[in-house]
Structure formats: C-alpha cells, structure tokens
Design a protein around this nucleic acid. Sequence first.
RNA 1: CGGGGCGUAGCACAGCCCGGUUAGUGUGCCUGCUUUGGGAGCAGGAGGUCGCAGGUUCGAAUCCUGCCGCCCCGACCA
Length: 490
Amino acid sequence: MAKGFTKREENYSEWYNELVAKADLAEHSDVRGCMIIKPYGYAIWEKMQAALDKMLKDTGHSNAYFPLFIPKSYLSKEAAHVKGFAKECAVVTHYRLKRADNGQGIVVDPEAKLEEELIIRPTSETIIWNSYRKWIQSYRDLPILVNQWANVVRWEMRTRLFLRTTEFLWQEGHTAHATEVEAVEEAEKILHLYADFAENWMALPVLKGIKTESERFAGAIETYCIEGLMQDGKALQCGTSHFLGQNFAKAFDVKFATKEGREEYVWASSWGVSTRLMGALIMAHSDDNGLVLPPKLAPQQVVIVPIYKNEDQLNQISEKAIEIKKSLEAKGISVKYDDRDTHKPGWKFAEYEFKGVPVRLAIGPRDMENNTVEIARRDTLEKDIVNQDGIAERIEKLLEEIQQNIFQKALKYREDNTQHVDNFDDFKNAIEKGGFVVAHWDGTTKTEEKIKQETKATVRCILFNGNQEAGKCVYSGNPSSQRVVFAKAY
RNA sequence: CGGGGCGUAGCACAGCCCGGUUAGUGUGCCUGCUUUGGGAGCAGGAGGUCGCAGGUUCGAAUCCUGCCGCCCCGACCA
C-alpha cells in the first residue's frame, strides 16, 4: 500500500532506513555518523522524555547538568573505564581558528593549543564523581540521586540512525550511597523502572537480567540490562543500569564519615537510556505500511480528516469535527484536525498511516446525514462506521486497546521466537533462525567467545528471575547451574 | 579499519564503457481549471556547482588521481 516502500522480508535494514526517512523521524547530517532528529521524531522522543522524567522524579531523583567537556586527566583515573572508552573519544585540542595564510578559508590556529586537552563526554561518571568529592563529607549528605538529560559522543565505526550514532541524546543517572546494599538496590530499582517504561509506554516487552563480564560497562562491578527482541530476530539492548561499587569513589577519592565516625568510600550506581529507544520503538511494532506507534507515545493520538465537495460542506463538517476534537481533548487525548485543502483525503490517509497515528477519523457528507463517523485503527488497519454519540468514550477505550494489542503482539512474537535448546547443533540452528535462545552456559568468557565466533550470538543476559536448573553447557559440556539468554544483537 | 556498491533537480533514477549542440525521465514543486469516501486529471511553468578538489584534453557528468559522504558485508564497540 505504501508506495515505493521496501517490505520487511525483502530487506529489513532497508525497510528500517526508509521508514525513518519517510516517516520524517530523522536524517543524516553531513557529519559522519551524526543525525538530525526531525520535528516528528523529536516529538516522540519528547513524549518518552516526559514519561521517564516523571518516573525518575517520582522515585526521588533530581535533574542537574554537568559540562560537555571533560579534562583528559579525569578519564584516566579509573582504569577499566578509560580502557573501555579511550578508543571512541572525540578530543578538543584547540580553542581558536584563524584565516588561512593563503587567504582561502579558515584553519586551526596552532597558537591556540589547549594546555590540557578536553574530551567530549562519552558518559559523565568521571566529571560527576569529581564533583561528588566536594559534595559529600558525611552520611548526612547521602544518598545523592541525580539525573541529567544530555548529549554524549562515542566515535563509532559503523552507525545507524537512532540505533548507533556518534552523538546521541540520553539521560544518565548517577547516584551515591552510604552502603553497598543501597547502591545495588538503586541499580535494580532503576532497571525495573526502565522495564516498566518499556512495557507500559513503549509497549515493548523486555527481558531483565545481568550482563556477563564481557558485556559489562567499563568500570562497573555489575551491569543490569533490559533486552528487547526486534522483528528481524535480533536482540536490542534497550537500557542499562550499573552497580559501580566503590570504583569511582576510590578513583576520585570520595569518602564520607559514617554515623560511627569511620571514614569510608561512597558506593555508586549509574544508569541510562538513549535515543536508541527510538530505534527499538520503530523496529518493535512497525509494519510494511510504515510506522506503528503506541498511543501513549504518539505525538498525535487521533487525526480527523474531513471529506467534502465544497466549502459549505466543509464548514458543516468542520463544525462537527471540532466538536469531536474538543470532546476528545477533554479526556486528555491529543487530536489533529487536518482540514488542509492542499491535499486530498486519500493522500492524508496514506500519510498518517505511514506516520503511525493510532486512530484516524473520517467525516464526510454521508456521516453528516447518518450521524456517524469512520474510525480506522493503525495497528490492525481495521475500519468501522460508528455512531457519533459517545465517540469520545469509544476512542478513549480504543486507544487503551491499541496500546494493549501492540504490546501483546510484540509479546507473542517474542514468545514464538524464544527457543530452549540443549545441544550445540540445535543451538546453531536456533540462532540461525533468529530470536532468543535459552541454553546452558558454563559461565566462562572463553566459551562465550567461542560461541560468538562460531555463531555470532552473544549472551544477552542472565535472567533475574531465571529458574535455577542444573544442566550442561551447550558448548563445552561443563556443568551449568542456570540457563542464559543468547541472541544475535544490534 | 578491510572487501564490495553508490554519489547527476527536493526524492528515485537514466546518460558514463566508446569525451563533442541547450544533461534527460519519473515523482515532487509552482499556476490555472476540473476534482475530493484510499496517494486525482489535463494544460502551462520553475528548478542542475553532474559529491568536492586537482589533472589529461581544443572540449569532461563521461577518462585519471586524491579527498568527503552514504549503503551492504566483515572486524570493533552500549
């Protein structure tokens, strides 16, 4: 139906790229790996931000802002951290340009070299913990529960709009606690909050678990994650939460006096989700007709399209349409009435369908006669002619139903594409087929590495609520106490 | 960073091998009329540093070199 639009089964990544472009979500910048988030795409991100921001504030967190530039020396203070990020840091070395000697254009002024080079933050642990040293003296100063909305830069080799870009937007929380237990609880609490957000707002079912050593955040003791399954059978890490132990406190010498008067290092957590969630949202629900948005994140939940032959008709229909719009808005539903005369109804139908607007209403002369309205829902593409009476209540219910239906569909997809296997032949076949593969693993990095080499699959996570069950590693045959989740991942 | 493909109007492409009038086609855009329940029809019109920079040549979209960017496959990585 959508003209010139690649189907998922033909070429999944082409489908994704075209969808992002044609639904007006984002485009490439002239700078390699960077993206321009267009108004419609940004509106969806803003809905996500608003929901997450409220959830974080409701759990006691406050927003703050730390600088984009980090002195190079900070990054090197935590050994694992620097090792993990050094390879992908953009570095500022100069602070001035000048006219080129030949008069052609501008060049970096060699006279303006910085004494200490600055890194553009790939994440903010170091600059934040440098501040926390000054903020924290006593147990009375704890906990600190700070979040920031920011951009970060990681110099990636291969980028894809939203999924992996050189610069991306995110929130990063950085908390400081008096005890290890508290810091672990915080990291876990946020992971559940992320899962709650993914499932109830994005309608995306996620697995909650712990990362293996090889996938752990650089500088963390433990990394927790939520993992989603995309429609091509690949897994996508949608959010991470880290228990940082005392690693950063030690690196930045952040100590506090306990109630008992002892001096101890502070315990930490950090956690984040990024504009990658946009990629997850797109890939989880959309179809061969374009974007499908969960009502809770759709910038416009309902669009009303008038169908008319002349101005008199339009005026009458408009009156009715605006009345319906108001009744919907009274229920907190966002509505766009598109009475533009520059596009025909059929064009508008196709447009809003491609952009994933959950519900479309059409009102024409026949509806005016019969006191009806046509309702079309994006998730199932079903159309219905209904009476105008009680339309607001009906649509309110329908939006909830669509939100549920999208989630259930994604959940069913995940269930249909989760396989349990007990030997390596079955494992390879299952990975080839795609989806989550649940299997025993002996817990060693070596085995994980071998499996990755042979199948391209990695351990996505060790499930939080995974049943303890004795078994043998699918690769090495060594004893295993629990199944873990494997998949090919983005 | 390695292998492959590509870069020509807003978008999608032809032309390039074999250099030679004014660089085409579809779509989109503008104007007018007719239309309007699933991407309207006709007529007229505007729109181009042929990715960028050099070179070869009387002459370059076309041949050569370098660079930039995008896509696919690897390697690497949240």
